[in-house]
Design a protein around this nucleic acid. Structure first.
Lengths: 190, 190
DNA sequence: TTCGTGAGTGATTCATCACTCACTCAATTG
DNA sequence: CAATTGAGTGAGTGATGAATCACTCACGAA
């Protein structure tokens, strides 16, 4: 069990996924090299290909993990709900999601995934992810389809606000777009 | 090569922008080469760089034109409004926008622009575009900031629906996400 | 007819990137 | 100890892509 230098491949794999989330969040799928990912993970590019079959597979692993975290956050939101009406549960989920994406990486990864749907495996992973979120939000809140749709819609608005780099502190049109949305970059822990 | 009749550089420029919209809509900024754009425009890659200073400048020109068309569509929506209440005007704008993005290219270009905000000039162009849309929707409808925000939010949901490639005709979770949104791919033009 | 200018390109440069392979070294097992 | 396995990498390779440049050709004016 001596792990001074060597590590297990599973440990490296999760480290690689963490690195991939950060790297792909920065520059998207086509704008990121596996050398970027490898550097952040502290391993060589060659070893990334030992752990994953292709660059696309790395991205998919990162995206899957991203949606794992999203669903977990929603779950956490449900558990902390006091008002158990559908609206109350959706609000709690929204709050939990807002907290999760405070670090911006998980949010940008979703944005970039939407822009990489020309890669079939990524499109499939993205659909899986939104399927999970939609099913979870619907079944655990008991809300109507319209309410769930509005919930998702507001999430998408958050993504726009983050990519534009605006928040409530702006005036004029930016305030209209970003009203009620705390900018992810502003780091104040709740 | 095929020596066609000479044309003015302005004509080539608009042809290049049209080609750029289609090309970038397919594979995004980093996933598209200027050779792709040139091929669609029927000119050589070298000439694209005579017309525009860089690949980024081509994308920005395409994005600017995209928002020109969006604002023009909203304007057209306003003009065809019968119910002149804020809600009525916003609804008319939404319908006009839905018609505009029926061809999917203008929609995907916006999605890909959101994913290319690491390029400063593209981020600036995107902000300019959403500024125009937000100001226009707000001032011409007289709606509250909240109503305008919801209008934008629904637009973003349309983008998600298009990238996921789903529409109302699906069942289950897809129907929840896409309710009320006609899929852009379904091409039924009169 | 000659000149000047603008349209348009082929060939090239220089960098980057996804992916491969032969290899080393550390640890476990018998 | 010898043998085997698994972690990990350096050094490539072939392909591609952004950008440049020297050039040709069309055409209108003098």
């Amino acid at each position: 069990m001596a792990r001074t230098t060597l590590s297990t491949s599973d440990e490296r794999r999760t480290a690689t996924v963490d690195a991939a989330i950060a790297a792909f969040a920065d520059a998207g799928y086509h704008g990121t090299t596996v050398a970027d990912v490898a550097k952040r993970a502290g391993i060589s590019p060659a070893y990334v290909f030992k752990l994953y079959s292709s660059k696309g597979a790395v991205f998919v692993a990162a995206l899957d993990r991203c949606f794992d975290l999203v669903v977990a956050a929603l779950e956490h939101g449900v558990e902390s709900t006091v008002d158990h009406s559908p609206e109350g549960v959706l609000d709690a989920m929204g709050l939990a999601y807002a907290e999760l994406i405070a670090d911006r990486d998980l949010l940008m990864l979703q944005v970039h995934a939407q822009s990489a749907t020309d890669v079939a495996e990524i499109r499939a992973a993205l659909r899986r992810g939104y399927e999970r979120v939609t099913e979870f939000a619907g079944s655990r809140s008991g809300a109507t389809p319209e309410q769930v749709q509005r919930f998702l819609s507001f999430g998408q608005l958050c993504h726009l606000v983050a990519t534009l780099g605006i928040d409530e502190s702006h005036g004029g049109w930016e305030r209209v777009v970003a009203a009620g949305i705390r900018h992810p970059a502003a780091s104040d822990r709740p």
